[in-house]
Design a binder for these strands. Structure first.
Lengths: 115, 115
DNA sequence: ATCGTTCATCGGCGATAAACGATGGACGGC
DNA sequence: GCCGTCCATCGTTTATCGCCGATGAACGAT
């Protein structure tokens, strides 16, 4: 972790968090910043729940690559993981997704109201 | 640009755009995927319009680094640029930002309705 | 017990991102 | 003209991403 750039804010005192930590928000956007992951999200939500293989068949990416993308989505908290036998079930965490959307809305609002 | 992963979709024919091109959406999220850029956005919107220097003073990043971040935001279409004498004025493009927010909302909705 | 399937992880590779210092162009002021 | 300021860009370094094939664990079925 770079842990330097924005720490100015903290170091400069004052502003403890200022609403939602931009670091955390950025992390979630980061998970959404790849077309494959967006498509995977759509696919997951359409099928309600998928195993890795299913996704692999859908997009022609190597299984390892898909697994990686799924991992990133899970780590970002956007997708929930559940081990089911030898399969792995992945499902969109709609609440979390809505939350990200809310964060963005908040940012947009802060940009407009702060005008 | 990798231009390989999701191109499967295109190459496989059919789906020309499927609503909003996930590629384009991902690109915008990518611009938002760095904490510094989020903070810069907030700062820009608070001050309505800033020159580069102003941002540099605010966050302790090198001038070149800030300039780069600003460039990324401009290229993503989230910030508008205007050359004003020897200064450079940067201002949030609120419409574009709202647009990104709308894209995300659409994604969330497609995830919930597609259930 | 031996396959076949599913999946996560490792190691490697090329490409991109992120940060910086240094350079030089464009202006304004002296 | 000569500085000082503001800024974009270049070149470099380091870290991370994105992709893959290969490996091995876990499990079901035969």
């Amino acid at each position: 972790m770079t842990e330097s750039a924005l720490e100015t804010d903290r170091a400069a005192g004052a502003l403890p968090n200022r609403g939602s930590d931009s670091h955390a928000v950025a992390a979630r956007f980061s998970a959404l910043s790849h077309p494959a992951r967006i498509e995977i999200l759509k696919h997951l939500s359409a099928s309600n729940s998928c195993c890795c293989r299913e996704v692999v068949d859908r997009f022609d990416l190597a299984q390892s690559t898909v697994s990686q993308h799924l991992k990133i989505l899970v780590e970002a908290g956007l997708v929930r993981f559940e081990s089911d036998r030898q399969r792995s079930r992945y499902a969109v965490d709609r609440a979390a997704l809505a939350d990200v959307s809310a964060s963005l809305n908040a940012l947009v609002n802060s940009c407009c109201s702060g005008r």
